[in-house]
């Protein structure tokens, strides 16, 4: 492996060597760029009946309550996790779906038509909350 790389390095022109080093630096640079500061970007999207009601940051602890088809659904955001604390639906499946914390996960309450999704957005949300 080392021998192959030395051979490549040997036959590469100065411009090629610049490209090799620049690519390596680009890889490590982008590694640190994408590894830092992503935690605060995840957002909690709560929609009822296919209409977005809340869009809040996962990093801010808060307690929310939305009006579903059957009644109120209480949602808690704490320690970068989201879960349903109280729901008016008969089977309480949404409460048993547990706590979600990663972008892409979701909690659904079918009787209330409440959908909670975690999304990571590339634009920083500089607002406390968006309601519709």
């Amino acid at each position: 492996m080392k021998r192959i790389f030395l051979q490549i390095w040997h036959i590469a022109s100065p411009a090629d060597r610049v490209i090799i080093i620049a690519t390596f630096l680009l890889a490590s640079g982008s590694f640190f760029f994408f590894r830092s500061g992503n935690d605060d970007r995840t957002e909690v999207w709560i929609s009822v009946n296919n209409r977005l009601k809340y869009r809040v940051l996962l990093s801010q602890d808060r307690e929310l309550s939305v009006q579903g088809q059957l009644g109120a659904v209480h949602i808690r955001i704490q320690d970068k996790k989201v879960w349903v604390t109280k729901s008016s639906c008969p089977h309480k499946i949404c409460m048993r779906m547990g706590k979600i914390s990663k972008a892409g996960q979701m909690i659904v309450c079918v009787p209330n038509q409440v959908v909670i999704t975690l999304r990571s957005c590339h634009k920083n949300l500089n607002l406390d909350v968006i309601t519709r």
Binding site: F5, I8, I11, F24, A27, F34, A103, S120
Partner: peptide, 24 residues
Amino acid sequence: QSEIFWLLPYLILISLAAGLGIGL
């Protein structure tokens, strides 16, 4: 979703290795 750009560092490294091999 912008999460797919997290693949970028790995893709760049793979590009470097594969590109050198293919070029050689």
